[in-house]
Amino acid sequence: MENVTLQVILAQLINGIAIGSIYGLLTTGLNLLLVVCGVWHYAYPYVVVFSMYLAWLVHRNTGNIALTLLTAFIAGIAISLITEPLFRPLSKKSEGAPIGTFILSTGILVILADLMNNVFIRLGFTAGSVVGFPQIAGNSLIQFGLSSLTYGQAIMVIGTVISVALLFYLLYRTKLGKSFRAVSQDRVAAQLLGIPTLKTRLNAFTVAGVLGGMSSVFLIIALAQASATISDYLAIKVFAIALFAGVGNLPGGLICGLFFGVFESFLVSFLPGESGAVWGNAIAFILILATVLFRPRGIFGSRV
């Protein structure tokens, strides 16, 4: 009896870490955009899910898995970069991260959500509000009793570990990373050092785009479906995780993303029936709401 429980716990743990990797990547991308570019990019998770839609279109026309995942990845980067110029006028006007950028990003998300929910259906691209993918890399890598670690989950975890390692290498050992850190600490001092403002912004959006593109690929593997509703929940959760950890705190956000994934995974499995998922979301929001109300700087401290 205990063996089964242990297996279930292990399965939820692995599932949680896999989902948590996605949360971690997205929170990091968000924090990066916030500290380097001063942008509250609420539409960022929507860009990620929208990339999944584009990938789905490719899949529908070619059936090629590799091409599909590649599309998701590239679309994530490309669309992020497309949104960059929209934020420039606001960033020029004020120091730090103006809340106007959050409002502007809701405009972007309204467009993306409408494309996914409405326009694509009208144009006959998609049939409904949810698009489905085939199970990718769903075979088990390691089996233990009734549960298993799938190839997909392994890819996600390993992929996240590698990207995080690369990201921190970037931030602490390369000129680009140093310029990110410099701009995030003191924008004027960075300008005096001659650090090119525009190039640094574009680079930051590209890195965030890469993280988003990877998340898009992982979401296709993990969820095998995409919808605008997923992006609604993803957005509020990722922002909430960032607040919980402390906005602008890159390592903090990463760790909290992972924990949140695990926490959510266990929560959903222990709550009964269909309302489990709904309450899973809600309890997560309550947890985060409590942080906002009682510990607004986040548990690791804010960097903005």
Binding site: K175, K178, R181, A182, Q185, D186, A189, L192, L193, I195
Partner: peptide
């Protein structure tokens, strides 16, 4: 005009950006 959260060496490296 220095970046207090970065090391002395990093500050000098950033000075040499171009």
């Amino acid at each position: 005009g220095i970046l207090p959260l970065m090391t002395v060496m990093e500050n000098l490296e950033l000075g040499a950006y171009y």
